[in-house]
Design a protein around this nucleic acid. Sequence first.
DNA 1: GTTGCCATGTAAGGTGTTACATGATTTA
DNA 2: TAAATCATGTAACACCTTACATGGCAAC
Lengths: 192, 192
Amino acid sequence: MNIKFAILGFLSWRPFSGYDLKKIFAQSQSLYWSGNNNQIYRSLVQLHQEGLLESEIQLQENNPARKLYTITALGQSALREWLTSQPEPPQLRNTFLIQLAWADQLDDKELEKLLVVYEEELKLQLLIHTERERRGSPNPARTEREKCLWRMISQNWSAVYQNELSWVHQLRSELRKFSGQTEPKERKKDHE
Amino acid sequence: MNIKFAILGFLSWRPFSGYDLKKIFAQSQSLYWSGNNNQIYRSLVQLHQEGLLESEIQLQENNPARKLYTITALGQSALREWLTSQPEPPQLRNTFLIQLAWADQLDDKELEKLLVVYEEELKLQLLIHTERERRGSPNPARTEREKCLWRMISQNWSAVYQNELSWVHQLRSELRKFSGQTEPKERKKDHE
DNA sequence: GTTGCCATGTAAGGTGTTACATGATTTA
DNA sequence: TAAATCATGTAACACCTTACATGGCAAC
């Protein structure tokens, strides 16, 4: 999957310029792309070449001209086909798990600190996400059902972070069983 | 983060050849790379150039020679530094969420089918993961603490899939409230 | 005699990122 | 005068993927 279908999706609402889309992507978290120019402008050109979009130049006073892109019938049907296509499973790429895989080389304190820092990072991300959702999405939400979908998409993100947080808690409590065994020279202290 | 630290991690256990590593990556799920040659062999060359690895050619009878890579002291300290570095939050890239964002264009049946198919996909992935974990990991697990870490890494994957599954269930039950309202020609039914 | 394993490596391309370039207008 | 916004686009590069190339040996 690439960003093209997300662009088609937005253009199925109404026409946008590349600059509009760039801002939308930059704002949104669920649309996880960075919103960089390169990708968006090139995608628009390609979609246009494939006949999925039409473009129209809008002249403005005091501001540079903008290229408004409109979805074509072909684009609509391409979008619809993608919508009903086999969904991919989520891509789970968590660098931290790989860090953990060799974290037995750290002593108890270092490991505990790593987990605490990861937990803080997760909390921060959760906060950023909820804050971003609070200040309006660029989402017209024309029907109740669409509102429901968008609410659940946002909730998916929260749920993932919360799931991760509770996993970290479990891990920390599991690891407490081993504390004091890393430096076998020292004798064990009671739960420090 | 890139694959190099994962490679350093394995070599901190014992020397491996590129071919060994390729197989390890291909087997493992938590190490989410595909295990393709290009990346592994080039990473090994680069790590070698950076002085983090030493290589030694092992001649064999009946089989082609292999290059055994050994981690250097510099490599060990680079690994250790990475292990204690600021952990990144998980990268959440779930294409399905983007598919859902415009799924209001589908009718009730199509949408329900999409969710069912996604659920099946998740169950399948969960199964594949647990099956892969069941048949031995390439993990020596020298200490109890390391065993615990690897167990929790594997459990993280299960937890993520299960979290996703319960989210789909919730979504499906939410959507049942709207069924029958997709064709607006029909008159509106009670509470809206 | 084709397929598969061992073991190395390269080519080509997809996807995404940051940073740069231009040039006018508005705001501090 | 410096910066931010509007609006377009390009350059360079990082990372990752599939597929190809070679070549001997073993198994069916």
